[in-house]
Amino acid sequence: MKPVDWFTQVLEVAAALAAAPLFQGWVNQCRAWLQNRRAPPLLQTYRGLRKLFHKDAVIALHASPLFRAAPYVVFSAMLAAAAIIPSMGTRLPFSAAADAIALVGLFATARVFLSLAAMDIGTPFGTLGARREMMVGFLAEPALLMVVFVTALISATTSLPVMSERMATQSLALSPSLAFTAVAFTMVLLAENGRIPIDNPATHLELTMIHEAMLLEYSARHLALMEWSAALKLFNYACIGFALFIPWGPAMGGAGPFALSAAIPALALKLAAAGGALALIETLSAKLRVFRAPEFLATAFLFAVLGLLVHLLLGA
């Protein structure tokens, strides 16, 4: 590992930390534009975080240490995920510690801690949210794993940076199996990040919310960490999508600092486009009833399975 690789690694994590709220702000802004509302400033998410960090924390009387520890665990899991995903360069020293399957596991760990923390206070909303989150989770995880599996089959590896490199250099220009898998991945992204067909990030209507219901009892710095992790999660998912399906841009192999400096604008461009697309999808679709969520995610799973089958048959 050369020093530049370590530099890329640190830069990636730092960029994820810094840019994740920005990306969320960007999605919110696009959404507002598309819905003919006045958009909040781009930096509003940062202001929100800053405000929360400065407040005094209020913790429920009978909260256990688990409740206070969970934000840190979730946040740390998202940071670790950001360190694995090759968003700027593919020679990441840390990525050998975990492959794509471990990444799926990492997201599951974060989800379990989030749900456990939501159950800790024992309010009806918290447990309801935890239950729903776990339901969406257990449906989304197979679909996500199937996506990983198809891309792993195509690139003959489960190591995310190597996958990304091989995807970037493969000879096929048009791959239906990858296209199907990308659709599946997008659906999983929507579900896992509490986006519109499954959950509404803007709602605070008790009976329909999932993610927000779990955070109801959090305040101040804990809430800030949770919201920051949610932003990081969205950012991470977007970067996984880039690494698998739009792999061009990051510094490949042992490329030097120049490639890295080209990777940053490429990532920014991709994020801007992805944010716009996400806002468009959210604007165009309506929220599903909770019990339609399984159908939605089963469709995602089916897409991934079709991608697998088409790949096995056509080799494409």
């Binding site: 005094d56 924390a57 209020v58 913790i59 429920a60 009387l61 009978h62 909260a63 206070i121 024992g122 309010t123 009806p124 909303f125 918290g126 008790e206 109801l216 009892e217 101040a220």
Partner: peptide, 10 residues
Amino acid sequence: RARRAPPWSC
């Protein structure tokens, strides 16, 4: 700083 209070629960 942190203080304890009854749960909010909306």
